[in-house]
Amino acid sequence: MASDLELLCAYVNEKIGNIKKILSLRNLGQDPALKTTFRKIGDEIVMVNELLNQFELEIQYQEQINSSLKELCESLEEEFKDVEHLKEHIPSHLPQVTVAQSLADKPNLDPKEPVEAEEPVLAKKPPKEQRIIKEMQFITTAEFDGVPAYMKSRLTYCQINDVIKEINKAVVSKYKIMYQSKASMSSAKRNLYQRFINEETKDTKGRFFIVEADIKDFTALKADKRFHVILNILRHCQRLSEVRGGGLTRYVIT
C-alpha cells in the first residue's frame, strides 16, 4: 500500500513540476526580447510537422508498393514452379495427326459411293453491338506528386484511386440501366431511369456523368468532406468536371 502511495505522490509531484515549467515558459513569452525567438520556434515547429506528414504519406506509399511487390514475387514463384514442372514432364514424343479430321471421322468411306452432303450449319446471329461505358482513369504517381500538399492533406495515392474505383462502379451501374430495354426493367429500375433522364441537360448530352444520389445508390461511399476533397483532386487531375443547374451538381467523366 505504501508503495502505491509513493507512486501516486511521485505522479502528482511530476504534474505539478510540469505546470510550473509551463507557467515559467508563459511568463518568458511575455518578454518582448524573446517574442521574436518564440515566433521563429513556432514557425520551425510547423515546418517540422508538415515534413513529418509528408514522411508519413511516403511511408504509407512505400508500404503499399512493398506489399504489391511481395504479391508479384509470390505469383512469379508459382509460375516458375509450373514451368519447371512442365519442363520435367515433357513426353518423349508427341502424337502427330496424319489424317485430315474430316476423313478421320469417316475412315471406311468408299470413294465410289456418293457422299451425302452435310447440312450446312446456320451461322449464329452476331451479338448486338455493346455500348461502351466510359470510366474514369486512375491517377498516376506522377500526377499524385503534382497535387499541391494543401489540397491532398493526408490522403494517399491508393485512397484516391479507391474512390475512382467506386465512382466507376456508379457510372457502370447507372448506364447499364440507361442502355437496358425498358420492357425488361423492374419498376424500381424504371424510376431510376426516369430520374437519369430528368437529370440530363444540353451540357451533358452524349457525356457520362453521375450525381451524389448515384454515389449513394450504387456504392458504399459517403458524400462527406473527405469525399469532396478527393473530388477537388480529381478536378485538378482533369478526371472530371462539374455541370451545375437546377440545384444539382453533375460530375462528368472527362
Score class of each variant (00 low, 15 high):
Val99Ile: 14
Lys20Cys: 03
Ser181Asp: 15
Gln62Pro: 00
Glu143Phe: 01
Leu221Asp: 00
Ile16His: 05
Ile19Arg: 10
Ser92Gly: 11
Lys174Cys: 03
Glu74Ile: 04
Gln180Phe: 01
Ser3Cys: 05
His85Cys: 03
Gly247Trp: 08
Tyr11Asp: 13
Ile210Ala: 01
Asn168Gly: 04
Val252Thr: 04
Leu231Ile: 15
Ile210Val: 15
Pro126Ile: 07
Tyr251Asp: 00
Asp110Lys: 07
Phe227Ser: 03
Tyr11Glu: 14
Gly245Leu: 08
Glu88Asn: 12
Ser24Tyr: 12
Phe38Met: 13
Cys237Gln: 03
Lys21Ile: 06
Asp4Leu: 10
Asn108Tyr: 04
Ser184His: 05
Met151Tyr: 06
Met178His: 07
Ser181Leu: 04
Lys40Ala: 08
Ile19Gly: 04
Thr249His: 03
Gly247Ile: 11
Arg207Ile: 03
Arg131Ala: 04
Thr37Met: 04
Glu129Gln: 15
Ser102Thr: 07
His85Trp: 13
Asn191Ile: 13
Tyr157Arg: 01
Leu109His: 13
Ser181Phe: 00
Gly246Phe: 05
Phe138Met: 05
Pro127Ile: 06
Lys20Ile: 09
Arg226His: 06
Gln96Trp: 05
Ile59Cys: 02
Leu94Lys: 12
Arg195Val: 10
His93Gln: 11
Val99Glu: 09
Val211Gly: 00
Asp162Thr: 11
Met178Ile: 11
Ser67Tyr: 06
Lys174Met: 06
Glu77Tyr: 06
Pro114Gln: 08
Tyr150Ile: 09
Phe218Asn: 13
Leu52Ile: 15
Asn13Tyr: 12
Lys20Arg: 14
Ile139Phe: 00
Ile22Asp: 11
Phe38Lys: 05
Lys35Phe: 08
Glu129Pro: 02
Ile22Pro: 00
Ser102Leu: 04
